[in-house]
């Protein structure tokens, strides 16, 4: 394998890690309450703004900034859940989706009103931009951290869902809400926890996004949110591993189409990505790792 291909694989891995992180939080919420939460990307935006405009501006060190951002993401998501999604739990699913669109439009426009749409240059404290040589390819310290943080988050999340009482309660709730309730599981608390975990991951993604690219704006959540939706669907909605896989595939596809195809096809990138996605779905109508939808009798 040439150094060029290796370099592009690394590029895809880093971009995919960020998509995966947003997609897993997105899928986490979906698996519990069957909600396509379009405001998820905007939670990442709020995470990014609090990281850079509040915590970093206050001169806090990275080891304080990261948990603080996680907490902000978790709190914002839990508050949104309490205010608008909880009262609608019995409503048709499409309502949740539309509500989340409403929340997203609301957050973005409040953001423009308060902060202006102008992108801001931001920087993480510390020397994270150092380049390292990796078999002829180049990676920065931040790239390594991003991939590691994503993998660690996925691992922790898997253990959490499989091993802890709360995680098991979540899985029970995701199987059947009313049965879980009958079993004495505090469903409301479990759902709040799911939103909080998803929100924390989104906040972390916002931090990484801002840190890697160095620019944030109130509309920055839209594209990652959309990509997360797409990634989660390719992977199979509701499957955490599927969402991560979908995120990595999407990031890899975007990088490779630009990197490998003759340049005159580069402007067709998004058409290729979505064409590929439709093909995947036609072959596997429930996504890569999704469970088949049961026919309701």
């Amino acid at each position: 394998m040439s150094a060029y291909v290796l370099q592009q694989l690394i590029n895809g891995l880093v971009l995919g890690s960020m998509y995966a992180l947003v997609a897993v939080g997105f899928s986490m919420i979906y698996s519990i309450v069957r909600l396509i939460n379009f405001a998820h990307g905007d939670v990442a935006m709020i995470g990014a703004f609090s990281t850079f405009l509040v915590f970093a501006a206050a001169g806090l060190p990275l080891w304080v900034i990261v948990p603080a951002t996680l907490a902000v993401g978790a709190a914002v998501a839990a508050i949104i859940e309490f205010l608008v999604f909880r009262p609608q739990r019995q409503a048709p699913q499409v309502n949740g989706f539309i509500t989340s669109l409403g929340v997203s439009i609301l957050i973005q426009n409040v953001g423009i009103l308060l902060l202006s749409a102008q992108p801001r240059s931001v920087r993480l404290p510390g020397l994270l931009r150092t380049n390292h040589d990796f078999f002829g390819a180049r990676v920065t310290t931040l790239d390594i951290l991003i991939v590691a943080a994503t993998l660690i988050s996925l691992l922790v999340l898997t253990l959490f869902v499989k091993r802890t009482r709360l995680g098991i309660a979540m899985r029970a709730t995701s199987e059947n809400v009313s049965a879980a309730q009958l079993m004495g599981i505090p469903v409301n608390r479990v759902i709040t926890a799911a939103f909080a975990v998803g929100g924390a991951l989104a906040g972390l993604a916002g931090l990484m996004w801002g840190g890697r690219y160095g620019q944030i704006d109130p509309l920055m959540g839209f594209v990652p949110g959309l990509k997360a939706f797409v990634a989660a669907v390719i992977g199979g909605v509701g499957s955490l591993a599927g969402a991560a896989l979908g995120g990595y595939l999407l990031g890899m596809a975007e990088i490779m189409i630009v990197g490998m195809l003759p340049s005159e096809y580069g402007s067709y990138r998004d058409a290729f990505v979505f064409g590929l996605l439709i093909l995947v779905l036609l072959v596997m109508p429930n996504g890569l790792l999704g469970k088949p939808a049961e026919e309701r009798a």
């Binding site: 060029y4 370099q7 592009q8 590029n11 895809g12 880093v14 971009l15 996004w209 690219y213 620019q215 920055m220 839209f222 594209v223 975007e254 990088i255 490779m256 630009v258 990197g259 340049s263 005159e264 580069g266 402007s267 990138r269 998004d270």
Partner: peptide, 22 residues
């Protein structure tokens, strides 16, 4: 020598950069 494209709203240019280096 070469042309590459991107789209408004893109934030990641690593693929274009690698292409340029190669």
């Amino acid at each position: 020598a070469e042309e590459v494209s991107f789209m408004m709203g893109d934030t990641d240019f690593s693929s274009q950069i690698s292409r340029m280096e190669s």
